[in-house]
Computed example of a mutant assay.
Amino acid sequence: MSEAATAPAVRAAIGDSEFDRDTAVVQRAPGVYDIDLSAGWTIINAVNGGYLLAVLGRALADALPHPDPFTISAHYLTASRPGPAVVRTDVARTGRTLSTGQASLFQRDEDGREVERIRVLASYGDLGALPDDVRTTAKPPAIPPVEQCFGPQDAPAPVPGSSAIADRLMLKLDPATLGWALGSPSGNGEMRAWFGLADGRDHDPLSLLLAVDALPPTAFELGIKGWVPTVELTVHVRCRPAPGPLRVSITTRNLAGGFLEEDAEVWDSADRLVAQSRQLARVGLG
């Protein structure tokens, strides 16, 4: 695949992109950060869970002595909305190679009361200090070249209220996982895509937190429509991604009692597994 086929003529730099600006937190006091959640990362007016995880991940990177998330687990308590929010962090432990902390994001409700939206527990380290040995049976997902895949811009008409985050992504879906868009879901519970940021910014550990939760829900390929809110999401970041687009593969094997799991793998342009995740999500079966 030609990288030029997916990248804009002028690429945004890490630290100076829309993603960086929209996830930036401002320290008000030790362990307390302010942010204005951007409406640009919404799906049907709900703020995307991966974007929220990146916001909290950035606050923890500032609060902890290590720079990179190794593992981060989030529980989504109430739906977040665009607008002012406060992130509060707490350092649980610091060590030589890993540090652990927790963070919560709060917003005010219509009555002015503070409501917790999301709570995370994470361990941070330095990905650059890890040895480069790899012993794995995992293989990159088989996705057609990006020119043979399809994105939101290829649809005949956008879904009302759903295009905000799509405008900020380079997302090209494997045609084999697009049956839901044609009225013929496969029933396989799989979603695969090429993934990048629309402004060409290369990826780093924080953008990997977005990548695992940015594809359409696998529930669509199971023939289920509507919002699929995340209950819990755990991400393991394995190494810093190489420049270029990512390949994301998400699979659901079990839907029971109105809940399903989604297992994601994220591969970089050097064929390395750079992130893994599992989430529990709720589906409407009525």
Rank of each mutant, 00 (worst) to 15 (best):
M1W: 02
S2N: 14
T6A: 15
A9R: 12
A9N: 06
V10C: 11
E18R: 14
D20M: 09
D20R: 06
R21F: 13
T23N: 05
T23P: 02
V25E: 01
V26N: 07
Y33W: 12
D34N: 12
D34S: 11
D36K: 03
D36I: 09
S38T: 14
A39T: 06
A46T: 14
N48Q: 11
Y51E: 01
L52P: 00
L52Q: 15
A54G: 12
G57A: 08
A59V: 07
A61M: 02
A63I: 03
L64W: 00
P67H: 05
D68V: 04
F70N: 05
I72M: 15
S73D: 10
S73A: 15
A79G: 12
V87T: 06
T89E: 01
A92H: 11
G95P: 13
S104A: 15
L105Y: 00
D109M: 06
D109P: 11
D111W: 00
G112M: 10
R113M: 10
R117D: 04
I118C: 15
I118S: 05
V120T: 13
V120F: 04
V120C: 03
S123R: 02
Y124F: 15
L127P: 05
P131M: 05
R135M: 09
T137H: 08
A142Q: 13
P145C: 03
E147T: 15
Q148C: 02
P152G: 11
Q153W: 03
Q153M: 06
D154L: 10
P156V: 04
P158L: 04
G161D: 07
A164V: 08
A166N: 13
D167V: 05
D167L: 14
R168E: 13
M170G: 06
G179W: 02
W180N: 01
G183F: 04
P185M: 01
P185T: 00
S186R: 12
N188H: 14
G189Q: 05
E190R: 15
R192F: 05
F195S: 02
F195Y: 10
F195V: 10
G196M: 07
L197T: 05
D202L: 07
H203V: 08
H203W: 04
H203Y: 06
H203F: 02
L206C: 10
S207G: 12
L210E: 02
V212Y: 00
D213V: 07
A214S: 15
L215K: 03
L215N: 05
P216R: 03
A219H: 01
F220I: 04
L222E: 08
W227P: 03
T230D: 02
E232K: 12
V237Q: 09
V237G: 12
C239M: 14
R240D: 13
R240C: 13
R240F: 04
R240A: 15
P243Q: 07
S249N: 10
S249Q: 13
I250S: 13
N254Q: 12
L255D: 07
F259R: 15
L260V: 02
L260D: 05
E261W: 00
D263P: 02
D263I: 04
A264Q: 01
W267V: 03
W267M: 05
Q276F: 00
Q276R: 12
S277I: 03
R278S: 09
L280R: 08
R282V: 11
G284M: 09
